[in-house]
């Protein structure tokens, strides 16, 4: 095959293309964006939705974790505490999820002495919605035992290997 011959070095101005023609529109767009349709406005409820989805995600993760612990078949008190932790935390997530939903539905006029926070009261008559709201407000009664179980699990693990020699495997 005959290759095309290059007679001599090309002049520098012939080899370089001017940058201005294609950079100019980009620069203009960046300086004057106007109403760029690609950008989406995140309104107020989005935060709540994300948070609620995070709870659901957390429930899924805990369930997955729980099943995996059972699948791997690790035995010992620590692993048992960890499984309980998963269960309690799933319960707490449900409580929290419901609580957040109940909080959305409750209106300020359903509270008395709203100007004094510590003396605030939930006005009657008590409906299911109000009871749920009130009970879910006390979600710490669920999450604290859950975290206690986590602590117990970690401590049990540690106790189980406490007497083994410290160091890396050789």
């Amino acid at each position: 095959m005959k290759l095309p011959t290059v007679s001599a070095r090309q002049p520098a101005e012939n080899r370089r293309q001017p940058a201005l023609p294609w950079m100019l529109p980009i620069a203009l767009l960046l300086c004057f964006p106007g109403e760029a349709l690609a950008l989406q406005v995140h309104g107020e409820p989005e935060g709540l939705y994300v948070h609620q989805m995070a709870h659901l995600h957390f429930i899924f993760a805990l369930g997955y974790f729980f099943l995996d612990i059972r699948r791997t078949g690790f035995s010992g008190k620590g692993w048992l505490f960890l499984q309980f932790f998963c269960g309690v935390m799933v319960l707490w997530n449900l409580v929290a999820f419901i609580g957040h939903q109940a909080e959305v539905l409750i209106t300020p006029d359903q509270f008395a002495h709203s100007e004094d926070y510590l003396r605030m009261r939930l006005l009657g008559p008590l409906s299911l919605q109000k009871v749920i709201y009130y009970l879910t407000k006390m979600d710490h009664l669920v999450i604290v035992p859950g975290l206690l179980l986590l602590f117990l699990a970690m401590r049990s693990f540690y106790k189980s290997i406490e007497n083994e020699p410290t160091g890396r495997k050789k």
Binding site: L118, R121, L122, G124, P125, Y134, M138, L141, V144
Partner: peptide
């Protein structure tokens, strides 16, 4: 019952947060 005080929930919330 006309109303329920929210103080228990506030107390549990604060103590529970610290316990967490």
């Amino acid at each position: 019952m006309n109303s329920i005080p929210l103080l228990p929930t506030i107390a549990i919330d604060m103590i529970g947060s610290m316990a967490n």
